[in-house]
Computed example of a mutant assay.
Amino acid sequence: MKQSKSSNRLYEKIRNYMQQGIPATNKEVQSLAKQWQNLVEMFAPKNDPEFMKSAEKFHIERVNFF
């Protein structure tokens, strides 16, 4: 449960930056993106580039899904 709450907070921070139009080159956005990537890697199948492509596509197509 703790992981879920922290990942939800992380997602909200990322989403807020996106909604504000803050560019991905922003240092804080880069830091949040790295944290998200580390979180995803904890649960994603190892060495599966197709999974990562599929996940990225899902989130690009559903920016407001969560």
Rank of each mutant, 00 (worst) to 15 (best):
F43W: 13
R62I: 04
E12W: 00
F58V: 08
K46F: 09
K57C: 06
L32A: 08
K57I: 03
K53L: 06
P45E: 13
S31H: 10
L10Q: 09
K34P: 00
A44C: 10
K13T: 02
Q37N: 10
K34M: 12
P49Q: 09
Y11C: 03
A55F: 13
N16W: 00
A55H: 08
V29Q: 07
E61V: 07
N47G: 06
W36A: 09
E41T: 11
S6P: 00
M42G: 05
S54D: 13
A44R: 03
Q37I: 04
K13Y: 03
A24K: 13
K2M: 09
N38I: 01
M18Y: 04
E56T: 12
I14A: 03
F66W: 08
M1K: 11
I22G: 06
Q30V: 06
F58C: 12
I60V: 13
N64M: 11
H59Q: 11
K34N: 14
N47M: 02
L39E: 11
T25V: 12
Y11M: 07
A24W: 05
K27H: 06
K57P: 01
L32S: 07
M42N: 14
A55S: 11
K2N: 12
P49T: 06
S4P: 00
E12G: 03
S7L: 04
Q19C: 00
Q37H: 13
M18C: 01
E56H: 12
I14W: 00
M52E: 04
F65P: 00
M1F: 14
K57D: 14
K53C: 02
I60R: 15
I60K: 15
Q30I: 06
W36R: 12
M1A: 13
K13H: 09
K57V: 04
V29R: 03
A55W: 05
G21S: 02
P23D: 05
Y17S: 02
A33V: 04
N26R: 06
M18H: 07
A55R: 10
A55C: 02
N16Q: 06
M52R: 09
